[in-house]
Nucleic acid binder design. Sequence first.
DNA 1: AACCAGGAGACAT
DNA 2: ATGTCTCATGGT
Length: 219
Amino acid sequence: MTLFKYYQKLAKHYGAQQWWPAETPFEVMVGAVLTQNTSWHGVEKAINNLKSENALNPDAIANMSEGELGVLIRPSGYYRQKSQRLQRLVTWLRQTGDLDGLQAIDTLDVRTSLLAINGVGPETADDILLYALQRPVFVIDAYTRRIFSRLGQVDAKASYAELQQIFVQALAKKSDLVELYKNYHALIVIHAKTHCRVKPQCQKCPLAIDCTFQLKSEQ
DNA sequence: AACCAGGAGACAT
DNA sequence: ATGTCTCATGGT
């Protein structure tokens, strides 16, 4: 069973996804920070708070105080950290140029630049690259590691870069990598949210993939 | 009522 | 390089 076969199986069952759940690229960037180790439900409330205050734009976030921003994003948790992280990201965005200006820069250069921001790690950077900037970068998250280690496809202890390389290699010959990567990650999240929690419900798995035998190797 | 959620950084080893 | 803490709200 190849990694592309798993993609096909997910796509057949769930259909093509339109993802990331955001109306603008900038909203993607904000959501990517707010969802760090946090359920999406709280992120939605935080983003709605920003919208209702007309604060979901770089200028507003840059000009707010750290405390004011913290109040608005509180439902997404870690609000003191995330308030600073959002403001650093926005500062970077304004210094580097706007979202359109970034299109002229090489993907790996943008990635390096993003990773240099305190509060932007590999997953957050790759979320932004793939879903906000339309770059062919495969996103790894906790769900990806959990699902494919349970399936025996990857080592649960592998690093972010190692996991990413495994997927990139496996999909290298496919066409339209941006769309493929977007869809694959979306399908992983959709599937995992209901079937691949820490306490899995594999007996109800719509893919009929019994991964429970691998659970002991997770530790 | 403990457990978990679409991570990342600081710090020690 | 690798392991351990901390950060915080809200749902189950």
